[in-house]
Design a binder for these strands. Structure first.
Lengths: 205, 205
DNA sequence: GTCTATAGCGGGATAGAC
DNA sequence: GTCTATCCCGCTATAGAC
């Protein structure tokens, strides 16, 4: 009754994003979300009609948040290396906030492919800034300023190096025998490591 | 009635591994597994007592299958580069069979962390061959034969480059504007690309 | 806008016939 | 070993009181 007017809707969205995309709780129910938000479960239906609708809302909200800076960085006229450096910095900052977002999208696509032919939410073509960036990578490779492969592999390497260590944290902690603090320290070093891997230094024997 | 004696148990296991770890259907129910296997749903309980027990069985089966060659390759006395090359080859072959296995393990660990303090299935230390391999990487870095960072980052890079493009196939196909055939072709080139990234050539300007 | 009560469905598990 | 029938529980969603 007090200050819980339109404020509750935002509270539910924020909580759902945290539970799904930050904590990675893929089996979280409406009750779980409501409990985490400290509200009654029926309010989720009141504000969002259904659980699926809430899910769509939070996925789209997070995607827009992600794409905010990324597009303007990629579309800027910065030199290639500086542009890539800023992109990594921005992307990693977002990733730390929502490490499981891409996993959820992937699961969502797989699930939908079983029923319909295509998944409407992702039938769009790749965004223009990405296509433009792929062209630039091709030029850099031809000029010999980065190792020669293909722009697609360059992008795959980049995303792989940024995303995987975060989403597979539990299993990697075990494999590499690191505790929570140690693993977080390692993650903090990743930006520089990724740059060194993408732009290799030439001091090898 | 005809030749369906002990054969059914194996059929259920094989089907469950395919549905879970190859197709990535994380929300698959007992009914889904039974349908995919063409058997009655109650047979899952007859053979495995519960869905959870079936799940544990298939995870352990797949993990053993994975670790089969890997340990002997890492423990062998091959030179570092050849050993790494064989490890990548073996690991990628397994990955193509079960691209979502590690995702399932991660989700499983996250889910269990919410209830108990630790997850018994993964409380073991990292396997000895891995710890041994980490030592070798350290030597290679000190000798300047691979780019200097830390063994942990080297391993993270390696696993990232191998695993991520496979499990995020749906989202990457969209981002990079590739159809199924094109994406599979790219994946086939990954072994070589990964080697070139881990062991960079020195022909840059 | 928020709550309680309840309907309805779907999945997991078991009993018992064959 | 395999099937049918059934029970139970948890989750989603909605009706209706406040």
């Amino acid at each position: 009754m007090p200050i819980k007017d339109c404020h509750t809707e935002k509270l539910i969205i924020d909580t759902a994003m945290r539970v799904f995309f930050t904590e990675g709780r893929i089996y979280a129910t409406s009750q779980d979300i409501a409990d985490a938000a400290g509200v009654n479960r029926t309010l989720i239906n009141y504000y969002f009609r259904s659980k699926k609708a809430l899910f769509t809302t939070v996925i789209n909200t997070a995607r827009e948040e992600f794409r905010g800076n990324a597009d303007s960085i990629l579309s800027s006229d910065l030199p290639f290396r500086e542009k890539t450096e800023k992109f990594i910095d921005d992307f990693m900052n977002n990733l730390i906030k929502y490490p499981y977002l891409e996993s959820f999208i992937t699961v969502d696509i797989i699930q939908h492919r079983l029923k319909k032919n295509a998944y409407p939410g992702f039938s769009e073509k790749s965004p223009a800034p990405i296509r433009q960036y792929l062209k630039v990578i091709e030029n850099e490779m031809e000029a010999g300023r980065i190792p020669k492969s293909t722009p697609v592999h360059f992008m795959m390497n980049l995303f792989s190096l940024m995303i995987y260590p975060l989403i597979m944290k539990p299993i990697q902690m075990n494999l590499l025998d690191l505790n929570e603090t140690e693993y977080n320290n390692v993650l903090n070093q990743r930006k520089q490591i990724i740059l060194d891997t993408i732009f290799p230094v030439k001091s090898l024997k």
